[in-house]
Design a protein around this nucleic acid. Structure first.
Length: 268
DNA sequence: ATGGTAGGACCCCTA
């Protein structure tokens, strides 16, 4: 079972790239963030033409937006909700059968938080902290036994999730308050699947700013996108892959797709 | 220390 998570930064603009990604990665399920398309304009026919007949989307004009595209049937999970009292299209949850269990899949787009890492003067940073706090509390009581959680969490928690740990400690996405709060969310019952496979001492990025002249040469990346699983899915975990080459495709997103693959017949 | 780029809608916001 191959699942992709990707902050696509406009679904309509990058539909051709999504097609290329399907060819390259052959995912059975795709979770996208920052679709930037309101529901009445969602390109459903084009997505179905790519082979994904089961679709859930929650979008709005200009900002945010998430969707889940699948080759296998699923139902929308009742765990889908709004956060911080805002209807800003940052979360979808679905449920499907896998390994003879109902598996819940969450797709999140966490607020970026603006530039100034001080909640007293930056309401966007306050929103980000509130969002993570609320999610941490909520998952204490609403974590299904078999759960996969993916998305753009806009936080790079570990030293080697950023190109320069010391320099980024004061930069939004890598401040201690963010990484502490994200760890509390993780500790509600998840495993960081990417770091299960790729050692913590190894640099690992999923995002490179548009503002670098040569992103590959300067390599000032961050791991903002994540793949979390509950421990009972750990025996089935097969592969993690970061599709770094997609950052060099024409008109790329600043995030690259990440893949999690499970064995379909685990010996648990 | 600064400013750099991109997407979408609207004369600027968000990332």
């Amino acid at each position: 079972m191959r699942i992709i998570s990707w902050n696509i930064n406009s679904l309509r603009l990058r539909l051709p790239l999504l097609g290329d990604l399907v060819t390259l990665a052959q995912p059975e399920i795709i979770c996208l963030q920052e679709t930037k398309v309101p529901d009445h304009l969602f390109p459903e026919a084009e997505i179905k033409a790519l082979g994904y007949n089961y679709i859930a989307y929650k979008g709005m004009k200009s900002y945010n937006g998430v969707c889940i595209l699948s080759k296998h049937p699923f139902k929308l999970s009742p765990l889908t909700k709004d956060w911080c009292g805002k209807e800003d299209c940052r979360h979808l949850a679905v449920q499907f059968e896998f390994l003879n269990h109902p598996v819940t899949l969450h797709n999140f787009y966490v607020p970026a938080g603006g530039d100034e890492p001080d909640p007293a003067i930056n309401p966007k940073f306050q929103h980000k902290l509130d969002f993570i706090k609320e999610a941490s509390q909520w998952f204490k009581h609403n974590l299904d036994s078999y759960t996969i959680m993916v998305g753009d969490l806009n936080i790079a928690p570990l030293e080697h999730d950023v190109w320069n740990h010391k320099q980024l400690l004061k930069i939004v996405s890598h401040t201690p308050i963010e990484t502490q709060n994200l760890n509390q969310w993780l500790e509600t019952g998840f495993i960081d699947a990417m770091r299960e496979i790729i050692p913590e001492q190894e640099k690992l990025y999923t995002w490179w700013s548009y503002r670098n002249k040569d992103w590959e040469k300067s390599n000032r990346g961050r791991r903002l996108d994540h793949l979390w699983i509950t421990p009972n899915l750990r025996p089935a975990l097969k592969t993690i892959k970061v599709y770094k080459e997609v950052r060099n495709w024409p008109k790329p997103s600043d995030h690259v797709p990440i893949l999690i693959e499970f064995n379909k017949t685990p010996h648990t």
